[in-house]
């Protein structure tokens, strides 16, 4: 029987690859957007503007303090009450972007605050405007603090993307559910799902570790 199910599983393997692709697309788009917004909000959060810092802080606290599955239900089920209809796919991307942005903006703000004040003073003293100070002096130096946890955050985001299956996005996790209805070997099916997640997460984990080591040696040089 086991063998029969295993053969069935291999037959429908392309279905899993489709799920994997959906997971990659949903998390890929979200993490690109979250990186852009996280960078912008992170810079604002490291600024001296108390109102901005407070507002972003409240947003980060709200996202960190609630389960992601609740956030996605709010976006998918409650927004329509206010007349905002979203399909599962854009709702998933919106929810993941909001989640990722909150975490990434904290990472970015931490990295920017780690750059010594003298660097800001030197850059502003030479007549660079705020954008130029950030672009040429501050952000490049903060990258060594930002990159390792940022890549780590991407891994978390990819894994969190499995939650979007609850609103019907046909991602890898949902493919697992659907398959279990036809092949009642939960262990076998979800082991395969797990392996496929691992296949995209693991290279990123390796990358994060490598960055961490590389940055650590650079730090010693500075």
């Amino acid at each position: 029987m086991m063998l029969f199910y295993f053969q069935r599983l291999i037959e429908i393997f392309p279905f899993f690859l489709k799920g994997l692709w959906m997971t990659a697309v949903v998390s890929g788009i979200s993490l690109i957007m979250a990186t852009i917004f996280g960078l912008l909000l992170g810079i604002a959060r490291a600024s001296k503007n108390k109102l901005l810092v407070g507002l972003i802080g409240a947003y980060v606290a709200a996202i960190r303090g609630t389960p992601f599955v609740v956030q996605i239900f709010i976006i998918f089920f409650i927004l329509p009450e206010w007349g905002i209809q979203l399909d599962a796919f854009p709702a998933a991307i919106l929810a993941l972007t909001i989640l990722g942005t909150a975490f990434i903006c904290e990472i970015v703000a931490g990295g920017i605050k780690a750059v010594p004040r003298g660097q800001w003073e030197a850059a502003s003293s030479s007549g660079l405007n705020l954008y130029q100070q950030l672009r040429y002096v501050i952000v490049p130096q903060s990258l060594q603090t930002i990159l390792p946890p940022l890549v780590g955050q991407y891994v978390l985001l990819i894994k969190d993307s499995s939650v979007v299956s609850v609103i019907g996005v046909m991602d890898l996790t949902r493919v697992g559910w659907v398959t279990v209805n036809r092949i009642p070997e939960g262990l076998m099916v979800f082991t395969l799902v797990g392996i496929l997640y691992f296949a995209i997460s693991y290279p990123l984990i390796r990358l994060s570790n490598r960055l961490e080591k590389k940055m650590a040696t650079q730090q010693v040089m500075l």
Partner: peptide
């Protein structure tokens, strides 16, 4: 507008503050 004025003033710090990268 400080940016404009600062471009006309050189400032040398005790701790140099060169851009390390």
């Amino acid at each position: 507008n400080l940016t404009k004025l600062r471009a006309e003033i050189g400032f040398v710090f005790q701790q140099f503050h060169l851009y390390p990268h």
